[in-house]
Every structure is written in C-alpha cells, then in structure tokens.
Design a protein around this nucleic acid. Structure first.
Lengths: 204, 186
DNA sequence: GCTTTAAAAAGTAAACT
DNA sequence: AGTTTACTTTGAAAAGC
C-alpha cells in the first residue's frame, strides 16, 4: 500500500540521514584532533559495522561516532586519550568510555591496552622537545614497564612522567605544569609516576 | 605459601525478600525513626540497621532489598530486626519470609603483583576489559563459577556477581590456576 | 537506560591546610 | 606538599519513568 511505501522511504531516508550525520561528525572530530584520513576511514568502517550489528539502538549516534573514532585511533596506533576525544565531542567522557567498551566487545575489536609510548611523539613535539628526549622517554617507559610499574596506571600519566623525566635528563627541562597540560593529567600524577620511574631507572 | 582462598573476605551481601503485605511508605517514614524516604528521587524507603550494619530498601509492594551486610547471617539478622520493627508498628509480616541472596561481593589477595597487560592478553582479550585510563582494575568475566573478578596490579582482587558463598572460593582457585598456567603468577 | 543502597580494590583529581 | 573527600569499575534486587 501507499502508506507502507511512504514509511519505507521515510525510514530509509532517516537512516541515510543518520549515517551521513555520523560520518560528518567523525570527519569534524577527526579534523579537530588532527588525525590522518586513514583513521577517519577506519572509524567509518567501525561505525558502519556497529550500525549493521544494530549496536546503536539505545545509544546516541554521536556517542557511537565518537567511540568509533576513539577505537580507530587506537587501532591505528595513534591513540587519543578519552579526555582529548571528549574535548571535540558533544558527548560526555563517561559515555564515550562506556560506548567504546560496548562496541569493542560486541564487534570483537580486541584492541590491546594503550601503550604509553604511543603518546610520546605527539606530546613531545607539542612541547618542542628533541628526538633525544623522545627516545629517552621511550626508554624510561620500557624499563619501568618491564619492572611492573605500568599495571593499572593511566597510559597518559605514565607517558607524561617519562617525558618530564627525560626532559630533565637531556637538559631540555619542561615544568611539570607544561607537561601536565599537554597530557591532560595533573602535576600530582606526574610527580607520583616520576618518582617511581626514576627509581626504576636506578637514578636517585 | 599461604593459600589465596584463605584470604577471602566477604565485603557485602545483597539479598531480597518480602513481607507479603502492601505498605504505606509515607506513614512508615513517620513511624520509623531514621528512615529516609524521597519518592521524587527513588521509590524505596531507606532504613539502616546499626548492628549488624546494613541498609534496607523498603518498597510499597512490601518487597525489601538488604545490602551492606558482611555475611549471610548478618543479612538474616538485619532483616529480622526490620521484621520486628514492622510488627511493632502493627504491620502484619509473614512468619518467616523467604530471603534470597542476590549477590555476594568478596575481596582476596593472590599474594603476588600482577602484570595486567600480559594478563589481559593471556586470559583472552575477548573475556577481558582492561582500560587503565578509565579504571585501574582488569575486569574478567568467568564462566564457571559465573562471577566477575576485578584484578589489580597489587594482586588484590574483588569477586562479585556470585550468589553462593562457595562461588568466591571456586573463583579464586580457578583464577589462580589460570594465571599460573600462563606463568604470570610471581 | 536511569534513579538508590553497600562494599572492596587502586588510580586520579580537586579542595584545603 | 600532604590530607581528606570523592569519583571511576564490577554485581544484584527493588518500582517506575
């Protein structure tokens, strides 16, 4: 009947519009975060998969879009923290985290925990630190993680402390506040992780 | 050489029951000293017992949820106190209402630090949630017994979701076995 | 899904002194 | 910088939006 046709067209249009909205949101947030086009494509694929698996029911399109982008960044090895992603999304950080865990589980993404080392190049370059500081920070992360200090710790805080320590060791000192600001953690967290890492490195 | 199962401590028991009688919570809030009732926030009336320490959510239907008790005996004791209080208010309460344990939260100590990163991969990413950016514990959903275990870097763990006292003990034995099998227990 | 209750684990954070 | 308080996670029930 005519009504059924109209309804089908309406829902098809609505679905199409929703998909377009989601993809444009992914694009907007990805631009704001400065992630490469390849990551946006991965995010779009994740979003479409979530759509096909009917994972959006009961959740906001914006939330799933943001979570898909967060997951894509991780999958591509250039993670953004939930804080950073939340800054460019209109969905609260808590919901992004929950939605990420949900789609990650349902789609079987099986992403490994974020490696703090993956934050080093980006944080260090926005602090205008040298290549030398970056490799020192990477070494500090490896050594302290090897000694079991990473378990349960936030990867951003862990990376921030290592960068702070490396900047001191390489005579390119940045203050705890400066590092804390780019990593979006507190100075207290940097101080705490820094003490443990310095000890693990055999300094002090 | 201490057995991790011996370190198990029950931290909280959640149980439900009912008195088989509808209640006027507005009136009950007046007659029960210390009762909290904010129907705009939540439909249940909150009543806390001191000894044993527990909190009860009392509903208009006469159904009651008890939480915060440290043992199943404490749940029965706390609910017994509440039943008597209600009878004292001339409210008819069934002779001995059936009490169903819904969840037991326990803590334990495996006695060794854990490499949660290695554990996440070893236990299988499909059964594990480990997002240290959001929470420091690794969440592991176990099939048998059907419980959820939170594992921390210190080796301390939380077992929840079980309904029987034995669930925690079986879960600890099972998780120790699995971690040892992976060569990840100190 | 949310609301409320309780308790543990450990990390992070904010408000004070 | 140190302390206190509080929030993150897990699980379950209750009645109702």
């Amino acid at each position: 009947r005519l009504r059924k046709w109209q309804e089908r067209i309406r829902t098809k249009d609505a679905g199409e519009r929703n998909l377009q909205f989601a993809l444009s949101e992914i694009d907007r947030m990805a631009s704001a975060l400065g992630v490469p086009r390849s990551v946006r494509e991965v995010a779009s694929v994740i979003y479409r998969r979530a759509l096909n698996e009917d994972l959006i029911r009961g959740r906001s399109i914006e939330g799933v879009s943001t979570a898909a982008l967060y997951a894509a960044c991780r999958q591509e090895g250039i993670p953004r923290s939930l804080d950073e992603v939340a800054d460019v999304s209109r969905v609260p950080q808590k919901e992004i985290g929950r939605t990420y865990r949900y789609i990650s589980q349902e789609l079987g993404l099986e992403l490994k925990p974020v490696d703090p080392k993956q934050f080093v190049p980006r944080f260090a370059s926005s602090l205008e630190l040298s290549e030398e500081v970056q490799s020192k920070a990477t070494e500090i992360i490896d050594v302290s993680a090897e000694q079991g200090l990473l378990s349960g710790k936030s990867p951003t805080g862990f990376a921030a402390a290592a960068i702070y320590a490396a900047s001191l060791l390489c005579n390119e000192k940045k203050t705890q506040r400066e590092v804390a600001d780019v990593a979006q953690v507190t100075e207290v967290t940097i101080r705490n992780r820094y003490q443990e890492q310095i000890e693990a490195m055999g300094f002090r | 050489m201490t057995n991790p199962a011996d370190s198990i401590e029950i931290q909280n028991v959640v149980a439900s029951t009912g008195i088989g009688q509808e209640l006027d919570l507005e009136a009950l809030a007046e007659d029960l000293p210390g009762a909290d009732f904010n129907p705009d926030n939540f439909p249940g009336l909150v009543y806390r017992t001191q000894e044993p320490k527990a909190a009860a959510l009392i509903f208009r239907s006469g159904k009651i949820v008890c939480t915060g008790a440290k043992s199943i005996d404490d749940v029965h004791e706390a609910l017994g106190i509440i039943f008597e209080k209600l009878r004292g208010l001339q409210i008819p309460v069934e002779d001995d209402p059936e009490i169903t344990v819904q969840n037991i939260v326990s803590s334990a100590d495996l006695g060794h630090n854990l490499n949660l990163n290695a554990l996440a991969i070893g236990l299988g990413l499909e059964d594990v949630e480990y997002e240290p950016e959001q929470f420091p514990g690794l969440v592991y959903r176990m099939d048998e017994p059907e419980v959820v275990i939170l594992l921390f870097g210190s080796g301390k763990i939380v077992i929840t979701g079980g309904k029987r006292t034995d669930d925690a003990e079986e879960a600890v034995e099972e998780i120790v076995e699995r971690i040892e099998g992976l060569g990840l227990l100190g």
